[in-house]
């Protein structure tokens, strides 16, 4: 057990891990519903299996190692749902199971459990799935109601599929279950801001720095398409903002968010992958301890003392 000592003042609030995670789950609800609406029952099955496998893995691991079982804090459920939302809608059923097991046991628990993992579990598991089953992880198809037939396989927008800005905004494009509908993600973002679960800093700065890079680099897509395609919005709102793997101080968070945006733009422009959100955020996850080391949260009262010192001098 590690004891975390934070800087005073120690204000107590009613927030606990469970309430925060419950808010994240609520914020993910619109995205999940639109994803299921777009990609059908298989998408719903993937979400259920992802959550169930994550919670079961956490329960089994904590039981086997004699720890206190903490599945009630809902963090495993969030990880499982995030992972499932990162899969294509027609992924096989075992994929969220393997992914959730990997995320919970290898990425989270083996490094010490909640708060001690150095990379985002769901995103790392997605990276592993992508490296293991590259064909199945990039088998995109159109939402079922778009063409009136069951499944039309196609490229994503980043792979050359043409879509109107409105379709991209609403989610009627090929992609992973969670990333397609921007409007649903924004509703979730607004809810989390309202509940003060996350701050606006990382998502907004990440999107802005990406947009700036996209303009500077001269992307194949126009600006609107760049911002509305792929998983960048989903990543910025739900993945990059993970408490454990992003810096603690506001300045650190700006550095982190800018880094994410730049790396994603670089991968999209020059990389061999069409989309770079997964690796962009994972790389910045790894850099986070370094940022935290050099950009420290100012000690409470320090600013005032500095001002007084100046006035006295």
């Amino acid at each position: 057990m590690s004891l975390h000592v934070s800087i005073a003042p120690h204000v107590h609030s009613k927030d606990s891990t469970a309430t925060i995670m419950r808010d994240v789950l609520i914020a993910l609800l619109p995205t999940t519903l639109v994803g299921v609406y777009c990609f059908g029952l298989n998408a719903a099955l993937l979400c259920v299996l992802g959550v169930a496998a994550a919670v079961l893995s956490e329960y089994a691991y904590q039981k086997l190692t004699g720890q206190k079982v903490r599945i009630n804090d809902l963090s495993a459920a969030v990880t499982g749902l995030l992972l499932a939302l990162n899969l294509p809608g027609n992924a096989p059923w075992w994929m969220p199971v393997v992914g959730s097991f990997f995320a919970i046991v290898l990425v989270k628990q083996l490094f010490g459990g909640i708060g001690d993992n150095f990379m985002n579990p769901a995103l790392t598991a997605r990276g592993v799935l992508l490296a293991s089953w590259p064909v199945k992880m990039t088998a995109w198809y159109l939402p079922t109601f778009c063409k009136g037939v069951d499944a039309v396989s196609t490229a994503t927008v980043l792979g050359g599929y043409e879509a109107s800005a409105m379709d991209m905004f609403l989610g009627f494009i090929p992609g992973t279950i969670g990333e397609v509908s921007k409007v649903a993600i924004l509703i979730g973002f607004a809810y989390m801001l309202l509940r003060k679960v996350i701050s606006w800093r990382i998502p907004v700065v990440m999107m802005a720095s990406f947009a700036l890079c996209a303009a500077l680099f001269g992307m194949e897509q126009d600006m609107v398409t760049s911002l509305l395609s792929g998983g960048i919005l989903f990543g910025a709102v739900f993945m990059a903002t993970d408490y454990t793997t992003c810096p603690m101080s506001p300045v650190g968070q700006y550095i982190y968010a800018v880094g994410c945006g730049v790396i994603i733009a670089v991968i999209r422009k020059w990389g061999s992958y069409a989309e770079g959100v997964t690796y962009g955020i994972l790389i910045m996850n790894i850099v986070t301890p370094l940022i935290d080391k050099y950009v420290k949260i100012p000690v409470y009262g320090q600013e005032k003392a500095k001002k007084e010192a100046k006035a006295n001098a």
Binding site: P92, V98, V128, A131, S132, W133, P134, K136
Partner: peptide
């Protein structure tokens, strides 16, 4: 369906 990553470096 082989899990490719295990025969890769990571």
């Amino acid at each position: 369906d082989p899990m490719l990553i295990t025969i890769l470096a990571p």
